[in-house]
Amino acid sequence: MTEEYEEGEAVITRVVIDVMKPRELPLIDLASALCLVDGVDEVHIIVSEVDVKTETMKITVAGNSIDCDELYKTLEDYGCALRSTDEVVAVRK
């Protein structure tokens, strides 16, 4: 039984993050860029707060094996600020 667990690999299949982005950055461009991250199948973005220069949003990323480093790197490249990671789903494969 123990050996069986050791052979498994944990993969991330869902991440919910709280992100602040510059208003001038189009939401569609950001969603498309996140969708191209390794292992991502779906991206849902809901804007929760709008400021003069920024927008705060809840991003839900789902996929079969999300590359979280690349996900965070993409957010950084697009000028977004990661405020918190609110939910993570990991599964063993």
Binding site: P22, E24, L25, K53, E76, Y78, G79, A81
Partner: peptide
């Protein structure tokens, strides 16, 4: 710079600065 203050991060090498 104003945007950086609001985002609490540097924007060097980001899409925003490049744009």
């Amino acid at each position: 710079k104003e945007l950086e203050k609001r985002l609490f991060r540097k924007l060097d090498n980001s899409l925003i600065t490049e744009a």
